[in-house]
Computed example of a mutant assay.
Amino acid sequence: MRNFDYHRPTDIAAAIEAARADGAEILAGGTTMVDLMKIGVWEPQALVDITSLSELEGYDVGSDRITFGALARMAEVGDDDALKTAAPVLTESLWKAASPQLRHAARLGGNILQQTRCPYFRDTAYAQCNKRNPGSGCAALDGGETNLHAILGGSDACVAMYPGDFAQALVAFDAEVTTKGPGGARTIPFADLHVLPGDTPHIETILNRGEIVTGITVPVTGALKASHYLKARDRESYAFASASAAVGLDMDGDTVRDARIAIGGVAAVPWRARAAEDSLKGGPLTEETAREAGRIAFADAVPLEGSEYKIKLGADVVAGALMTAHARATGGE
């Protein structure tokens, strides 16, 4: 690990000023940053520790919207009883992520910006990584192991998978992210925050240098209360998703009034399956229609050798999550 400067500003303006400098990176929980610094993937010239900015802490479960400060801790939010009732998909996606120790350290703002777990990105012995070394190539596409890589949203330059859980719930339910930066404050639809790799996989979000995520807002909808996050993984705890689904249903009797579906563990960015949602609206939710929605969610998948299993697994996860959400929507759970 190389030497670096350390800043701990006490107000947002000072944090923005420090973070806009070349080579500076923002530090919150540090659960990703410190790991990547230890293995030499990131070598920032300065760290800007924002954990003293108390105005970015806390959260509120309102009747029309749920708001989170960027520094709210994953564990605190995931264990909130009011939130478990109002939006189970949010709490489930948090407590199914990482270990208890990491959840107590990690902050929501950092969680949504976490880096890929692609082994070729995280191992500097591989020179070919367009995300780490733009223009160097992609070791995964050049004969490497691809069972952990994206089958949706990848490109000829990168097939790294976005690893987060909470982000799938946010993209499914039209969340927004608030930020402050050198250009002032702005509100960004969460669906627009992350960008597909294309020819520039090293550019992962639309955030500008020095721009700091300050909060997250989720509008309350009928489908949010009858929601569920289902995660399939190699082991029961502390493992990233092989496939996951964040879903919600709003029912009018036996008819689906609104459906929300996002899928994780399979895509380059948080991925909303709108065609699958549309296939359910206006009709009944049955095991057959749930399975069809799962198939539709993966209709455009482009698997690599070793990742074909994600298509069937992912479709089954979507169907299973929908059946649980249906039980919640109709009083069966």
Rank of each mutant, 00 (worst) to 15 (best):
Q101N: 01
L27H: 00
A232F: 14
P197F: 15
R274S: 14
Y238E: 06
A268M: 13
E292S: 09
C138M: 10
T187R: 15
V195K: 10
V77I: 13
V220T: 14
I212M: 08
A15M: 09
E76R: 12
I26N: 03
E308I: 05
T289F: 13
G332H: 00
G210Q: 05
T214W: 01
I16R: 01
G164P: 06
I50R: 00
A160D: 05
D35Y: 08
N147D: 15
T217Q: 07
I66Y: 01
E236C: 00
D316N: 12
R122Y: 01
N147P: 00
V159H: 12
T200S: 15
G181F: 09
K96T: 12
C129H: 03
S242Q: 10
N133S: 11
Q168Y: 02
H194D: 01
A139D: 02
L53M: 04
K38A: 02
R20C: 04
G135F: 07
A301W: 14
M323P: 08
P201R: 06
L285W: 11
H104T: 12
L90V: 12
F166A: 11
G210Y: 02
R209Y: 08
F240Q: 03
A268V: 12
A75D: 09
G198T: 13
D81F: 13
F240C: 03
T255N: 03
G181I: 12
V89Y: 05
A125N: 15
V61M: 11
A175V: 14
G183E: 10
T91G: 06
T31H: 04
G78S: 08
S52C: 08
D252V: 06
S227F: 13
L102I: 15
K225M: 03
V269M: 09
H149Q: 12
T67H: 12
A267I: 14
P100M: 00
S54W: 07
Y238A: 13
W42T: 02
G78Q: 08
D22I: 00
G110H: 11
T179A: 03
T91L: 06
L108E: 09
R117A: 08
G153F: 02
L152N: 10
G331N: 06
G314L: 06
V89I: 14
L207E: 07
D81G: 03
D252T: 08
Q45V: 05
L53K: 02
G253H: 14
